[in-house]
Design a protein around this nucleic acid. Sequence first.
DNA 1: AACTATGCTAACGTTAACGTCAACTAGGAG
DNA 2: CTCCTAGTTGACGTTAACGTTAGCATAGTT
Lengths: 129, 129
Amino acid sequence: MAEDKVFTISELAAMFDISSRTIRYYEEIGMLTSENRDSLTKQRSYSNGERRRLKMILRGKKLGFSLQEIKEMIDLYESNPEGESEKSRIISFADSKLREIEEQIMQLQMLREDILTYKEKYENSRVKT
Amino acid sequence: MAEDKVFTISELAAMFDISSRTIRYYEEIGMLTSENRDSLTKQRSYSNGERRRLKMILRGKKLGFSLQEIKEMIDLYESNPEGESEKSRIISFADSKLREIEEQIMQLQMLREDILTYKEKYENSRVKT
DNA sequence: AACTATGCTAACGTTAACGTCAACTAGGAG
DNA sequence: CTCCTAGTTGACGTTAACGTTAGCATAGTT
């Protein structure tokens, strides 16, 4: 597979409909890395790994998490914990995030129901054409 | 029922664990109203209606919506549309919000699965005690 | 009367998450 | 060589969503 394709910053930006500045900002705060920069031109290039990472960040944003929260979650994904206490810490962090997410899902389902109810109220009051 | 109970601003704030400033701010941007202010002391007082409204705002926030988006949704709830075109507009707004919410639910479920997978990976690598 | 608690307005301060702009560099196109 | 396109690094600007502080008023307590 052509899994070794690399992208320029503007390709990546266009791909997700964000600005290059946003990508640089994510690097600035340590959420993305740009290794393999051209040693002469200093231009950034991104692998499929970084592309996936960016995709995760944007998913998190759409779900209403802050960049800090997203960073913690991604660190969770990419951590390789040494020792039992480290593992326990990660597992309990995961558990608390899971509870938070499940709570959000429930609330969203309630909101959905609410909107559906109000919508139907209007639909049933429509004049037959 | 004692549905006619009213609350002071700090009671309401304590009730939802937010600041009084936040409540005043929501009023500032037109998301809450404080009718029935004491004509002499100018102190705000809130009815159960306003309490529910605030609750909806905070739910929206927890779900990652901006105050502007929340305002539009609440306006939807409280609108009393005149005429068919107004109704259609509201119904299509509701539909688009519903799709957005359903998309969010799906994404959250995927995120949940992802975290579960990673968590189990760690759990299975734990040493038996 | 003095004090304390609660609330008010007005206004400036703060943080996250970028937007924007200037000044520069390297790589082609003609 | 000249021009144009992409990209780079500062650095200052902006917006949402409040926090904080000052100065004042009112109501209840001692």
